[in-house]
Amino acid sequence: MRQVDFTKQVDARGTYCPGPLMELVKSIKRGQMGDVIELISDDKGSRVDIPEWVNKMGHEIANERLEGEDYYIAVRKMK
């Protein structure tokens, strides 16, 4: 259960709208290149749609792990 140093953590548990992925999009957009944003989500859909968006947009998954039902994903802004 490795963890990484992150620039900012966003706790999006218990949120449906705009939802965890939109919170990540917002944070990545505002961040600097190289920043690592760690997002926590309890929405099962996040395990699919967040990596899909990260890969599509050319950013990097620095770490991802499950703690119970909580999904932690750390994303490094690459551009």
């Binding site: 709208c17 705009p18 939109m22 859909g45 749609d49 899909e52 968006w53």
Partner: peptide, 12 residues
């Protein structure tokens, strides 16, 4: 839309 579906809420 910025993400992979037409609204952030899957049911919507």
């Amino acid at each position: 839309y910025p993400i992979g579906r037409i609204h952030s809420l899957q049911p919507v």
